[in-house]
Amino acid sequence: MARVLVIAEHDGATLNPSTAKCVTCATALPDAQVDVVVFAVDGQALGGQAAAIQGVDAVKVAEHPANEHALAAVLAPQVAALAGDYTHVLAPSTTYGKDLLPRVAALLDVDQLSDIMELLGERQFRRPVYAGNAIVTVTAPGEETVVATVRTASFAAAPGGGEARVESVTLDVDLPTHTRFVGLESSASDRPDLQTASRVVSGGRALGSAENFDVLYGLADTLGAAVGASRAAVDAGYVANDLQVGQTGKIIAPDLYIAAGISGAIQHLTGIKDAGTIVAINKDPDAPIFEIADIGLVADLFEAVPALREALQG
């Protein structure tokens, strides 16, 4: 029997949808019993949100003033203290999970598996390597606890409506003070969250400036879509880093992905492979993005994107 601990991700008020995706992965393990742990200063409301995810058996709420910000050095010893009761410890493969879980694995003296995209058994998984150009099947060694991050684009979020029990846990561990939170500069907007949006409009280097991104914002707002970008557009300073889609940015799986002025480097394509429909608009008919696009249009984006917006509004 698999006893699984899922580490919840949240911003202090709301559970990140990546948590429900991890639960889907966890419940796919044979005969799984799934607990979710919430680390927070005041975690009762968050615990309630986690308890509503279907498939969760119990929610553990670990409250501590040091848990105000998600510092890996502070959270890892707490996870390690809980891990003894479990066969698997899972976290989403977001910057939060990627920062935290290797530290947990090292404390437990076990290896870690990154970005699992498919389960083949209790200890056997598939994961992408080489920017998604190869998929490797790996088996976790020996009998040790399986510690893994979950590639959230590969799993649908578990539905709500569950009624798991919520219990407080007190963890008797020394927490370090050598790591201190200073601040968070967020480019949060009213648009949907890039990681979970069902529609995404993305721009590349061809946009040419931050101001020119307005043409994409217009289309995104008409579609109710999130906005993304290629690495080139972020490097050029047109948009903030948190909009980057690709191998080293966000891996997303929207129903509709519209790439405007993005040539389609391998590193970008790996971030959108699970999208439902990919639309490419590019002036260059030889752009690699057309090789994987479901619908391609060779056109100047500055004409095509406003025209598409107008047609949608009409």
């Binding site: 911003d11 510092l71 977001t94 910057t95 939060y96 920062d99 050598h178 790591t179 201190r180 939170f181 200073v182 601040g183 968070l184 500069e185 967020s186 480019s187 949060a188 990681q195 903030a240 880093n241 948190d242 966000k250």
Partner: peptide, 12 residues
Amino acid sequence: EVDAGLETLEVD
């Protein structure tokens, strides 16, 4: 560079 934006930490 984190999913939510730019976070600053101070570490010893």
